[in-house]
Nucleic acid binder design. Sequence first.
DNA 1: AAATATTTTTAGACTAATCTAAAAATATTT
DNA 2: AAATATTTTTAGATTAGTCTAAAAATATTT
Lengths: 219, 219
Amino acid sequence: MNLSSTEQDYLKAIFAITTIESRSANTNAIAEHLKTKASSVTDMIKKLAVKKLVKYEKYKPVHLSAAGIKTATSLIRSHRLWETFLVDRLKYDWSQVHTIAEQLEHVKDSELIDKLDDYLGNPSFDPHGDPIPTRNGAFPVREEITLINMKEGQCGTIASVLQDDESFLEALNDLDICIGNDVEFLKQISFDQSIKVIINNETIILSETMASNISVQKI
Amino acid sequence: MNLSSTEQDYLKAIFAITTIESRSANTNAIAEHLKTKASSVTDMIKKLAVKKLVKYEKYKPVHLSAAGIKTATSLIRSHRLWETFLVDRLKYDWSQVHTIAEQLEHVKDSELIDKLDDYLGNPSFDPHGDPIPTRNGAFPVREEITLINMKEGQCGTIASVLQDDESFLEALNDLDICIGNDVEFLKQISFDQSIKVIINNETIILSETMASNISVQKI
DNA sequence: AAATATTTTTAGACTAATCTAAAAATATTT
DNA sequence: AAATATTTTTAGATTAGTCTAAAAATATTT
């Protein structure tokens, strides 16, 4: 099916909200995710429903159809492979690559993404630590926990981030926090829910928001 | 300046017609080049004139301004670097890469193309043999002659093609003609203007159209 | 130089995606 | 369950790019 970049963006947004964030894909949630307005979302949802990419009943949250899930997954695959290329090969900083990959992921060619995958050595995780779907649409898994949910004394390594906002990624850079770093959870400070952790042998305090957006692979 | 992909395509078309093909950029010539209609061209030319990218007087052919030339050149640079990436790194056949590069060239990021250039080792010519403008906008040169214009007994190597049409590139593939092959011009057959040449130690006949679209580097 | 042909421009309409503002439906509070 | 608040949808407008058909300008032929 030939979809516009915009249609593809909507499918990705619905996938992110439902499958990744486990929320229901209301009109407003989608609008917020795509920084557009609710009325625009309603229009587009109708279009996608005609194309059988979403299941839609008026005033109800939307769901992706099997075809919709397939398309969204292959977009995520494309996005994450391009991010891997930009960081590993072109030496971009991982905080810069999201907006570029947003554009690259929409390039249409039947062979491109599989060739890129092979060229990069079929990586399982991207520079943000997120799983790259295989060409069959399967997401590689690993045992992860959100930093804020760790127990006192628990150890692990930074595995991925739950937000792609450039300011968030820069904050991590400023704190010298990278994918792969060792973490030990010390304790949560009840006053403001901030947490005390050891990362790279340095004891630091992270805000609740910060710690809610960092995913740790259990050891 | 923030230009849409469409605006960029018009600038490239005007550059190709004026500078590469040495013709004047009439409304119809541009329309034909972009497979659109004359009325659409007029509308767009007016837009580009307001943005000072072209010099335009009603009913006259358009010319690119200095800014227009700069933009067109950097698009050609982007296009040819992506083609090089697709062929050299992703192992595409050179006949397949044009339409993919058409999409990739529009990806917007201030550092991307220079990083790609460095990654590829700052190549001077793309897989079609065409010069890749440097980051300063200079076109690398070499001594070339169109195959049809060679003199009897003259020798050279296939340097580039003057058409990107997929069917043309496939025809070259079928004849086992590649960039870098040695050529010796034998004679032109006056009956139909076809030519007799030795390519890779094989004597073959090429149609006039064919030979008009192959560029040979003189030895 | 008048008649004809070609090219270019204008006028008005269409599509995809968006928006604002109002209306309708659903959800929450009292 | 009535009143209020929130969410969603509709209606109508806007913008970028395109198109067809007609009008205007330029070019060519006789």
